[in-house]
Design a protein around this nucleic acid. Sequence first.
DNA 1: TAGATTGTTAATCGATTAACAATC
DNA 2: TAGATTGTTAATCGATTAACAATC
Lengths: 225, 225
Amino acid sequence: MENPKENPNPESTAGGVPKAVISRLSLYLRELEHLERTDKATTSSSQLGSVLGFSDAQVRKDLAYFGQFGYPGIGYRCSELIGAIRHILGTDRTWTCCLVGVGNLGRALLGYKGFHQRGFRVVAAFDVEHDKVGSSIEGVDVYHLDRLPELASENTITLGVIAVPAPAAQAVADRLVEAGIEGILNFAPTTITLPDGVSHVGVDLAMELEQLCFAVLNSRDKTND
Amino acid sequence: MENPKENPNPESTAGGVPKAVISRLSLYLRELEHLERTDKATTSSSQLGSVLGFSDAQVRKDLAYFGQFGYPGIGYRCSELIGAIRHILGTDRTWTCCLVGVGNLGRALLGYKGFHQRGFRVVAAFDVEHDKVGSSIEGVDVYHLDRLPELASENTITLGVIAVPAPAAQAVADRLVEAGIEGILNFAPTTITLPDGVSHVGVDLAMELEQLCFAVLNSRDKTND
DNA sequence: TAGATTGTTAATCGATTAACAATC
DNA sequence: TAGATTGTTAATCGATTAACAATC
């Protein structure tokens, strides 16, 4: 046991990818798409890293979790790496989504072009207020929340976006789960509890500002050292 | 050198707090505020952790970076810990903010009650479109971006929120920096470059959905093991 | 007192960095 | 060829977990 052997099971990588790697993958993708739009055919780990504030080693290591995408001496072909990262993230297919909560934020999300551009199709919006139900926002029909199960199975909706007030969020989450949704993006500023097998990402806008406050205070301290 | 001494400089903690600790602190705070609203006077590291999916040890360790806030045998008094975390994050004071970009998302942000509730005061909004300039949204006046320097110094605006299209984001960031802003919350789906001393948090809504996709795909794999 | 829970240390685990042979 | 850059290994660094004496 003093002299450990090499891992005898080389293809066992799949499950053990750090979560931080996946966020960076999204950043690499965004940057690569930007490079491609500005007609750069290739890039390198050091170029990609320096724009985003990571080391070249980190970029290569992150990609190495999933395979070999580069050319020694050359770097990475943007279009190829874009395709590879999209495939890894799963955004090389179309995802069918619904939105619950057509308030200020919900309406803004429906108007957000970025979702459609990246292959997310919002096929229905839901609310419980009768003056909203029946309307159409940015081409998306607004239904009463009671019709969620029906529309979810008709359209095989996979992802749900929650944009309701915090007190309603858990009940909405439960109904999305009941309707067979596999993933929830939660904008309500509250913790929601979900069964295993349902994925979850939470975005709390006020929390992001809090993080910024802390960063500002720390930066002040560092400057007046 | 074989037998290293204990750290001779015990109070050198300040700078070295992992970034992940700060996000968890925000989550603890949100949960504590929820507990307080539901009339729980005290909680414990294991209770706090289990709701949020962390271990009790992690909760205690995170708090230990900043001091001692609990009572052995009792736990934490919610109101005290809320005060302590707010002080750590810097949200025990009022932060003066401005918003640039009064599109769908910008308007939604102006209507978002959570900011004001947590001590963020949005004192001005800016845009370059003449039909928007001069209007007032949710009680916040919309000015032409050219008036940013003037209004920033009059109101000592500390934080700026960017909600403009990606191609305009860097130029807006530069003008915010020029106007003396100390922190930027960027909702534009692009990387912005800032000088040292200006803090930065980026939120890319499409990226969050990408993260969710990956989680859903992985969860499927795990289920069909 | 017995039970609960903290703060803190030491042990474990995981992630990042540095270095370099292989490749174009 | 010389220069650039990859993929990968080993070394370093940092963060999480487990354990427990101290405390209420």
